[in-house]
Write a protein that binds this DNA or RNA. Structure first.
Length: 478
DNA sequence: ATGTTC
């Protein structure tokens, strides 16, 4: 059924779908031969979706598919589309249903020896303290007024309410706040979100206690406050039901407002709104408000982690290294063909990876480069990278966001058994506490690409360079 | 990803 897309190799780890009829720009695909081959298997729509993205009005330079690219709603997950802010469009599929899904890393003063023997207890306490899985309940109790404050203020509201420090804000992309309008968030999204502040969610979301197993770049690691054997905590979560409902409703609004656009698309899921339309601006404002919610959510879980580490291990200095978004669109200045332009950069399953010097990077890291966190699949390694010097030229300042799914959730559920996975992990000293066995099977390492390979490509291309590798000690998930 | 199927 699916038509085979022809790729041309242009350099080591760099491939291209040449521009042809209907495309505004070519598609750049970054990956090793093995990773690119996985995108070319029968019925895989990653590359045809990449090609569809290249037809978007106002898209500049090239559509990007990253080494972890796999098929998603309309757009590939692991993709970047940068559009002109005047002639371009905004597309919910280029941002993702989980608005401002992202990853934050916390560092503790502990080493592996300090937590030895406490692994299971730690997993249990974290599991009890951070609501996970589908449905209602968050670590933080919030009413509707609080929710509006969160949607407007993000991490700033959290600080004013006593749930975040100034240092937390300073170590967050955008300082944990974008200028959105809570009034543009659909009422149903509000009702789904108001009691989910500080909740993990399901699927590939997790909270993991990790040990820094390898350091590749000691100087940069030191700048990030990391060293070998140090205990860190990684949180991967997003905007829960609120972001999902916001995306769903604006997809519907766009379809209704622009039936002619909907009819003309190569894929219905590519639906977009021209940026000069009011509904495009409304979606952007709602998306930024939902992004603020996601930051508050990750911050609330950070407070839960602090509570557990203080109670259980007497540790009162759990500090935020950084917090990255991997499902968002932001206006940024980029150089194309010698000129500098303001572009709306859609990153879906793509992490901003700005090199040293960019004004967006917080003071603490500006001379080094932006920290980037890339979780592997459950039970494998995760990576800390640093924004690379070539990222602005190759990927609009972006790199991958994870291992990248290889098998569908349904296929994984058929192939793997939760009990066996739990046993295998435990034999390796990793405690996994999950609310649902189904989720465990869906997230089996075999369902994902090889994260080491994804990282190797990012490092070799110098879009995000290797700083450290972390391995799990205990993991909680929905 | 998701009150996992409007």
């Amino acid at each position: 059924m699916s038509q085979q897309i022809q790729l041309t190799q242009v350099a080591e780890n760099v491939y291209e779908i040449p521009e042809d009829e209907g495309m505004e720009v070519p598609v750049r695909v970054y990956g090793s031969a093995a990773l690119v081959e996985e995108m070319q298997t029968a019925d895989d729509r990653t590359l045809s979706q990449g090609r569809n993205v290249a037809t978007l009005p106002g898209i500049r330079k090239f559509a990007v598919v990253l080494p972890d690219g796999h098929q998603g709603y309309g757009f590939p997950i692991g993709g970047v589309a940068a559009v002109d802010t005047e002639t371009g469009v905004i597309s919910p599929g280029g941002i993702g249903f989980d608005i401002n899904c992202g990853v934050r890393l916390l560092r503790t003063p502990l080493t592996a020896d300090d937590v030895a023997g406490h692994e299971e207890e730690l997993a249990e306490r974290l599991y009890e303290t951070v609501p996970c899985g589908l449905g209602k309940g968050g670590y933080l109790e919030t009413n509707m007024d609080d929710l509006r404050g969160i949607l407007d203020g993000g991490m700033e509201w959290m600080r004013e309410a006593g749930h975040a420090t100034e240092a937390d804000l300073e170590h967050c992309e955008e300082n944990g706040r974008l200028d959105g309008d809570p009034g543009k968030v659909p009422a149903e999204a509000l009702s789904r979100g108001h009691n989910q502040v500080g909740s993990l969610g399901s699927g590939n979301h997790f909270l993991e206690v990790q040990r820094v197993a390898d350091v590749y770049d000691a100087e940069t690691a030191a700048a990030f406050g990391l060293a070998e054997d140090r205990i860190v905590v990684m949180i991967h979560s997003g905007s829960r039901g609120l972001g999902h409902q916001t995306c769903t409703e604006y997809v519907r609004r766009f379809e209704r407002a622009f039936p002619d656009i909907a009819d003309s698309l190569p894929d219905k899921q590519l639906i977009y709104a021209p940026l000069d339309e009011q509904v495009a601006e409304d979606y952007k404002q709602a998306m930024y408000a939902a992004a603020n919610f996601a930051w508050a959510n990750r911050q609330a879980m950070t407070q839960a982690v602090r509570e557990v580490f203080a109670d259980l291990l007497g540790v009162n200095t759990v500090e935020l290294v950084y917090d990255v978004c991997h499902n968002i669109a932001k206006e940024e200045r980029h150089r194309i063909d010698g000129g500098e332009d303001t572009l709306l950069v859609h990153r879906k399953g793509a992490t901003r990876a700005f090199p040293a010097g960019r004004p967006e990077i917080p003071d603490a890291y500006r001379d080094v480069g932006q920290p980037v966190f890339i979780p592997g699949s459950m039970g494998t390694a995760s990576y800390v990278l640093c924004g690379g010097e070539r990222s602005l030229d190759l990927t609009f300042g972006s790199t991958a966001h994870g291992a990248g799914r290889l098998k569908s959730r349904m296929q994984a559920k058929k192939e793997y058994s939760a009990g066996e996975l739990r046993r295998t992990l435990r034999e390796r000293g990793i405690y996994v506490r999950a609310r649902s066995g189904g989720t465990l099977a869906e997230e089996a390492p075999g369902a994902y690409k090889d994260v080491d390979e994804v990282i190797r490509v990012s490092d070799a291309l110098n879009i995000g360079t290797k700083v450290a590798r972390t391995v799990p000690i205990c993991n909680i998930k929905g």
